[in-house]
Design a binder for these strands. Sequence first.
DNA 1: CTGAAAGCGCTAACAA
DNA 2: TTGTTAGCGCTTTCAG
Lengths: 338, 338
Amino acid sequence: MGVTVKDLARVAGVSTATVSRALRGFDSVDPETRQLVLDVAKRLDYVGSPAAAALSTGKAGSIGIITPFVDRLAFLRMLGGIEREMRAANMDLLLYRTGDPSDPHPVPPRKRLARRVDGFLILSVAAESPDLEEILKLGMPVTMFGTTGPGASSVYIDDRAGAAAAMDHLLERGHRRIAVIYGREIDNPIVLEHQRYLGCLDAMRRAGVPVEDRLQVPGHYTMAGGERAMAQLLERDEPPSAVFAFSDEMAYGAIQAMKNRGVRPGHDIAIIGYDGHEISAALDLSTISVPFELIGATAARELLHELGQTSAPRTAKVLPTELIARASTGTASFHAEL
Amino acid sequence: MGVTVKDLARVAGVSTATVSRALRGFDSVDPETRQLVLDVAKRLDYVGSPAAAALSTGKAGSIGIITPFVDRLAFLRMLGGIEREMRAANMDLLLYRTGDPSDPHPVPPRKRLARRVDGFLILSVAAESPDLEEILKLGMPVTMFGTTGPGASSVYIDDRAGAAAAMDHLLERGHRRIAVIYGREIDNPIVLEHQRYLGCLDAMRRAGVPVEDRLQVPGHYTMAGGERAMAQLLERDEPPSAVFAFSDEMAYGAIQAMKNRGVRPGHDIAIIGYDGHEISAALDLSTISVPFELIGATAARELLHELGQTSAPRTAKVLPTELIARASTGTASFHAEL
DNA sequence: CTGAAAGCGCTAACAA
DNA sequence: TTGTTAGCGCTTTCAG
């Protein structure tokens, strides 16, 4: 196929063992020898075989990213951060989407990835997903976001506080009938979502506002779902005066639903999202900004640490969120109505 | 480490060769033997070593996705389509971002991926990128989108027609001073962008409208870039009456810039994007819809064909675009002004 | 500091 | 249909 260590050894006049050592920069190699090998390698345009190395060392040189949401903006942003860190560590990225209901023969990620990667980055997977359990049982290095689990390190945001901040923001502006567009069923939540829900309750309780079940609708974290949810809310006898969507994408859908019915966001009904995607600025959507790129990078570094692949200093694992107030939660005319 | 073919062979009382054959479903195996092996494998919870298989066969069982835009919406959507197809074929996805200027020691993708993957999916890489050239020289299966190259198969959209449609839409509504927010430098384009530019010229020529260089600004395919571009345009003595942004994301930024200056999109200045992202609906942004999920899936299938990994029928490789007219290119009040 | 030799786990001829 | 026997390309003891 290509140039192998054997070729290098022959041309350089050393053994394959020395080639291997030189190539990996061991200091138990004479500098001159090393240079010789390196030169030959360059001259012959040598490219190593990761498969052979993996087989020999037992290390795959790659990590698996597991998430149910390959097509969500938040994932995209995390991926950016992960990619940067992992590339610097020379680790490959293997993508695995879990829980795709459209897959007729789901191969469990354990089977698919177990021997293929050195560790896992698990993003926003439901805590009681069987896939998750299986992976944890593997006993391999795992770093998670949006979930916690025994034996795995996690990167967090303070979701409870973030959600409370969103609610407070609405409450401060005088809203009392506040709808919540959450993701999936409240009783089967990914941990992150659960925290978010608790944060809402915190704020409501503090403000002495009763929680109305009827004002809580699922939006499945998609724009279409948010649109349906909002449509539903608008058909109520007493629609809410404000809406907190658990993701910006659901908020986009909600805004869409409002516009379709001639309801002006931020004017007739206030709305706040969660995620802080760049695009929200163009929609004047208030939101809780979440540093997804940083989350990705942090999780990646964390995993590298567990793999012993980096000497970079550890960084904080609880990342901050921030309220970004825009027109969708308050214009002059809106205040006048209160 | 774990259970190996040897273990299976021993327990099942057959040779490793038979185990291997049974596991891979060869029909040269007695059904009973196969079942026996399968049972044992399941009982021992066998998970194969892809590295060993790869080393032995020379096939990596994975494909490399190369793109400069890991953090763009279009990539996200293509990734969705790719993932679905590749997973069905049991192929792993390796991500590689090219041309990241922030990377101090870029390892060329050839070195990084050559031995690691069986083929490449190259998305929106500039035609004269040295990385591209190197990969093509490898002589491995390659499928591209947004670029063409010798020896590689491609998936296309008719970008020239799409861009012309966008321009026609604006021209039909009476616009004559139409700005174009393109991506990078026109003389160093990814092929796709070049076609898009030609489409603009086609439309302008047909309409007999002179092309003004001053109305063409780069937006680098980012929202921030689009915002800067629009800001620049608004500072001109004679700002355009309409804008065609080569991507929805740049259009979002442009809308943002307009709003910041009290200019009403679709009312004071018309704007149309390109890509057809879902979110554009919430912004009432007219756009040229591009079937990115389908593009990803099609490219993936195409590559699988080249790899001889699928028997699925080939599908069309030129995919359609579609104009979606929304309020950003025409409201009643806007028409009144003409 | 360097070399020889034995694998890592699997697959692929070639025989049987 | 099945088994035997070599590897695939690299790393890693263990000597030297």
